[in-house]
Nucleic acid binder design. Structure first.
Lengths: 161, 161
DNA sequence: CTAGAACCTACAGTGACTGTAGCTTCAAGA
DNA sequence: TCTTGAAGCTACAGTCACTGTAGGTTCTAG
């Protein structure tokens, strides 16, 4: 079975990550150091694949690396710490719900703006007004809630296309 | 009316931003250079307040600074750019909708995870298994879609508390 | 055997801030 | 008027989670 060991490029392809990212995870101790070939190239097995898949999936779901590290530590010692995992999941759920509420508010404003622009003429870009007015009545986003957990916004959310 | 000019600290307080952040926005050209006192301290007026409020609110909604810059440029020249505004708004709307879809998928996974943990006992914690399995049938998040727009995940989403 | 793809290390750059050091200025009270 | 301490100033380093580049080495298919 020559399929049991594969290169970093293979691993990257199979998990949808980048080669650089894998090396980075190794560097920060999120991925274990793999075996090397004579020529010093990394060789991975199914365990590495599973672990990286776990990490990537968690990242896609918005977990920061610290939380993933925590989760992985639970995986490494699977007995007795369900409550910890549960707490993490609950925190993530709350954050996701908050974010969804904010984005829905944004969506509505954008729709309204597009509708108003549709009319043609000179656009009264109400989005700008709306966004400028921090105390507007029709915005559903919960500024206060966001403020409470002291992480006012995903630092780098890249909503633009 | 002595209320018409205020310090950077005041501005920060009124918009819920940090002093450093305001200076940073000035540095990257997102905020205009304000007047200074004899002693070289910044003095702001209501226009600055409005602009910063706009920026902060947009950031809270997840817009990256580039998008905000674009939006602001429209606000600065409100006439004649209706189509441009419309295009931007549409792009943002799409992005927001995509993001909402992803977050809803996340939400459901987390809920299921929590529900499964609910069983309690020692450890039927499927949380990790669920996330580790990249080819699981019950995951609704659209990996492929996420991959398509080449921004696999908010780089630094900090959904954790 | 050779071309070129994929690998290696090491380090710089990104976005959007945040923190620190070491000064100067301002506002209020004695 | 003087003084004290908060708030301001500049300049630069650090953060997270990568991403990119330079310059060299190794692997593999023809």
């Amino acid at each position: 079975m020559p399929e049991r060991e594969f290169s970093i490029g293979e691993l990257a392809k199979r998990t949808g990550s980048k080669v650089q990212t894998i090396r980075y995870y190794e560097q920060i101790g999120l991925m274990p150091e793999p075996l090397r070939t004579q020529g010093n190239q990394r060789r991975y097995g199914p365990k590495h694949l599973a672990r990286l898949a776990f990490i990537r999936h968690s990242r896609e779901l918005g977990f920061p690396l610290d939380a993933i590290r925590e989760l992985l530590s639970l995986a490494d010692v699977p007995e007795r710490s369900c409550t910890a995992a549960d707490a993490i999941a609950r925190r993530q759920l709350e954050a996701a719900e908050r974010r969804i509420r904010q984005l829905k508010a944004l969506k509505m404003e954008l729709k309204r703006m597009i509708a108003e622009c549709q009319g043609g003429k000179i656009c009264e870009c109400r989005v700008i007004e709306v966004l400028a007015d921090s105390s507007h009545g029709h915005c559903l986003s919960d500024h206060r809630a966001a403020e409470k957990d002291r992480r006012p916004v995903p630092r780098h959310a890249h909503l633009t296309a």
